[in-house]
Structure formats: structure tokens, C-alpha cells
Amino acid sequence: MLAMTLRRFNLLILAVLACGFAGAVRAATPALHYVPNLAKAGDRVILDTRKADLCEEASLPGARCLPAEDFLGQGQRLAGFANIAWLLGSAGLTGAEKVLVVGGNPVRRDFVAGLLHIMGQQDIAVLAGAITGQSAKLAPGEARAMLREQVWQAPARDRVLVFINELRDLVTAGGPPQLLDGRPERAFWGRVQNAARGGHLPGAEHFPAVNLRSAAARGKVRLPRPGPAVVYGAGPVDGIAYMTLLIAGGADVRVFPGGWAKWAANGALPADAETFPAPAVAEGAAGDFKFSTGVIAGLSAGLLLGGGLVVTAMWALGRRKVV
């Protein structure tokens, strides 16, 4: 009898542990992750990050239009936190919803997903496939309201961000544990200059975003070395999209949103593989050069003609003396 009671007690303990383990597995689902299709997404608020006209014409059923361009100001600069919170409120979001981020351009889609993560959105799934490849029938998307419909309430995950002064201090002190550059190889080595100068941050490793998308969709990104990392791209759009890939892939990263463009603009900051754009010839200067060449050519012709007249005159004078 005692043995049976102990067996039942053990079975009860195992059942409790199993339930706890299952709950832990469910809780382990990251707040930012990819899903292959709508069936895997579940019941979520759909956010379409394509341009407003495309979204409003045809999107997934019930989708709200939240174009990536709305978060950018002049010169592709990232809007401030207050403006981003207002924009999200105008899309009817508070931060407590479960959302599904969709789009056509994967970089801009992941940029918006990363912004939502930074702003504190509770649960973000990113549709890895194209909108048109889904089984659902398309319908017009819902345009973002001109006025704020909800107040954004989620606390920001500001620990994810690294600003330029902090990064400068980290670099001068020997660098963060890992510093990863997600740009293409030619940009990393300064062979192309899309900023004030070419190159990369001191000590940065090349870990291009283009090679990570399939691994991130499986949630299995492996950094060059274990441990946390600071990551960046050319600017805020591709940099935050790069962060999205890595966090969804299970990596512990923070992002420098200004990217290489922000760093390169300050000539006092150090760089590796540093290059500079070739100086461009001003249009006015080229015109002046052509004008000067024309003047010189005209003077030369005039001198030759004048010389010819002098020779002719001397020949005529000599002949007159002979006669």
C-alpha cells in the first residue's frame, strides 16, 4: 500500500515537472521571431510595411498599413522616440498586441519589426514569405489614421541601443566583446564609399546580413564567437533590420542605429581600411578650363596669322628694293 502511494506521488511530481517544462518551452519563444506562413502566425494584428498605395490597394485581410518610410525623416534619418510612439498609436497600437509584420522588401520589413522591438512591442512575428504567396485572399489594407487612435504604453527596450558616444568609449577602451558589420564586403573594405569616407569601425568583423536570412528564419544564428555583440549597418534602416535578423536568430546583440554613415561623418573618429571618395571636378571649373583652352587656341592662331603677314610684308619690301 505504501509502495503504491509513493508511486502515485512520484507520478504526480513528474506530471508537475512536465507541465512546468512545457510552460518554460512556450515562454522561451522569443519576443521577435520569424514564421514561414500565416498558419504558423496564429491570431495577430497584421502590419503591412510596404508603401501606402500598395498596401491600401491589396494586402492580407485586416492588415493595417504601416509603411517603413513613415519612420524616416530628411536624409533617411530615424524619427525620434516620441514621433515613433505617435505613429504607432495612429496605427491603433498600444504595444500590448501580438503583431505579424509583413512586407515586400525584406530589409524594410525587418526594419519596422526591429523598431517595434526597440519600442517594447510585446510579441512580434515576421512573415518570412511574400504576401502574394499566402493562401489568404487579398483585400485593401487599412490606412494609418491622421490622428492618434491609441496611446503607446509599452516601455522601450532602450538597452538594445548603443549611441555614438558610448560606442566611441567602448572602441577607445579596447572595443566591445564583438563588433559586427553587416554591410556588403566592398563597403566593409572601403572599396565603395557611400558615406563621408569608406572603411569600417576599428576592430569590427565582417558578418554580412545577406548570409543570415535563412538561419534567422530557423532561429539558429551563430555569431563568430559566443557572447554579446554590438552590430551596425550603413544607416538606421539596414542596421536595425540586421539587428532583427540576429535577435530572431537567438543572438544577444545591441545595435548602433546611426551606422557607418554616422561614424564616418565625424573625421575625428578612428577607422580601419579607411578610404576617401575621389575629388569630383566641379562643372564650373570644367567650363572655365574649356574657355581658357579656347582663348589660348585663338591667341595661337592670331600669332601665326600675324607672323605670316609680317613675313609677306618683308618679302614685298625686299622685292621693291631690287626693282
Rank of each mutant, 00 (worst) to 15 (best):
V99Y: 08
I84E: 15
L88W: 07
P140Q: 03
L100G: 01
G114W: 05
G133I: 07
A96F: 08
A128G: 15
A125D: 09
V112Y: 15
D110S: 03
V112N: 15
E97G: 00
L93T: 00
Q134E: 05
A125W: 08
W86I: 04
V102W: 05
L127W: 12
K98S: 12
A85H: 13
R109P: 08
A85Y: 10
A139V: 01
I84A: 13
G95N: 10
Q134V: 15
L88F: 15
G95C: 00
A113E: 12
L88V: 09
A125I: 11
A85T: 03
V102Y: 03
V112D: 03
K137D: 10
L93H: 02
G133Y: 12
A136M: 05
I124N: 05
L93C: 06
V102L: 08
V126L: 15
P140I: 01
Q134D: 10
L116C: 05
N105T: 04
L87V: 15
V112W: 01
L127S: 06
S90W: 06
L115H: 04
G104R: 15
L115A: 00
I118V: 15
L116T: 02
W86Y: 09
A136K: 06
A139Q: 15
A91S: 12
F111P: 02
A113D: 13
K137M: 10
L100N: 09
G92P: 01
A136T: 11
T94Y: 04
N83M: 03
K98R: 14
N83Y: 15
G103M: 02
V107F: 07
T94E: 09
G141Y: 00
Q122N: 10
A125V: 04
V102S: 04
L93Q: 07
V99T: 08
A91K: 05
G104F: 13
I131E: 06
G120Q: 03
V126N: 01
D123S: 04
L116E: 05
V99A: 01
R109T: 14
A130Q: 12
F111E: 14
S90Q: 10
V101S: 14
L93V: 00
H117N: 06
A128D: 03
H117C: 13
G89W: 01
E97S: 00
V112P: 14
A128L: 03
G103R: 02
G133L: 06
T94I: 10
M119V: 09
R108P: 09
